[in-house]
Computed example of a mutant assay.
Amino acid sequence: MQITIEDNAIMYIYLKSSERYEKVGKLISDVRCGLLYDGSDNLIGIKVFNERTNDGNGLIEQIDLPNVGIIDMPIYKSKISKSESDITILFDTDSIIHHIREDECNIDLCDEGIYGIEPIPFTYIGGKEIIKPFIIRDKPLTLTKHV
């Protein structure tokens, strides 16, 4: 797995390598998720639920979660589990969930399963100590200089 972060608020979790897999034109939007944090407010995982907000009427609907498929990148001490109602990714199996921050996410798909997960629209990332091994880009906020 790999993670990119921008402005400490925009995050993308890659489950597939962009060199070996290609996103297909489909995604599942507005999926309910929870960002998982430890007692020190470090991001330790994400839980994606089988519910999404219907674009047409705004009601919550049940969905079939896609298969995760093969992870072709280092997973270090992480663990991915899937049930009928959720997919849980813990970036460190020794971490203890202290609190969950409710959010929504988009799930990008490829022919082999989930390509990546993007919490939307902007989310508080929190501490990055646990996710450091997965971060491939962490671009800080750059303020525009007014002249």
Rank of each mutant, 00 (worst) to 15 (best):
G113E: 03
Y14H: 14
E19S: 13
S18C: 04
I130K: 08
D92N: 15
E19D: 05
I120C: 12
L35M: 15
Y12W: 03
F122Y: 09
I46F: 02
D138M: 01
H98L: 02
G113H: 12
L36W: 02
Q2V: 03
I75M: 12
C33Y: 01
S40C: 08
I71W: 00
N67C: 08
N54E: 13
I46T: 02
I135E: 04
K139D: 14
D38C: 03
D55S: 11
K139A: 14
D38V: 06
T144D: 06
E129A: 06
S17Y: 09
Y115R: 07
K23A: 07
D30Q: 09
C110D: 14
V147S: 08
K139H: 14
L141M: 10
T144I: 03
I135N: 00
V68R: 03
K132Q: 11
F134M: 04
M73F: 05
I131P: 00
G58E: 06
L35N: 07
T144P: 01
I107F: 14
K26L: 08
P133C: 04
T53E: 07
P66D: 11
D111A: 13
M1E: 10
I117P: 07
Y37D: 09
I5H: 08
L36I: 01
T142F: 08
T88P: 03
D86H: 08
P66L: 14
R52H: 04
P140M: 11
I70G: 02
S40E: 15
P140W: 12
R137L: 15
C105P: 04
V147W: 10
N42T: 07
P133V: 01
I28L: 15
G126N: 08
F49H: 06
Y14V: 06
E51S: 01
D64Y: 06
C110S: 15
G45H: 08
M11C: 04
V31H: 04
N57V: 00
P66K: 13
Y124L: 03
P121K: 04
Y124I: 06
V48G: 02
K128E: 04
G58W: 03
I63L: 12
G25V: 01
G127A: 05
S81K: 10
G45P: 13
G39T: 12
D7A: 11
S17K: 05
D64E: 15
K47G: 02
S78Q: 06
T144L: 05
D30E: 13
S95N: 09
I130D: 03
F91K: 05
G56H: 08
M73E: 11
D138F: 05
T4Q: 05
L35H: 06
I28Y: 15
L27P: 00
I125F: 03
G58L: 05
I96M: 08
C110P: 05
L36G: 02
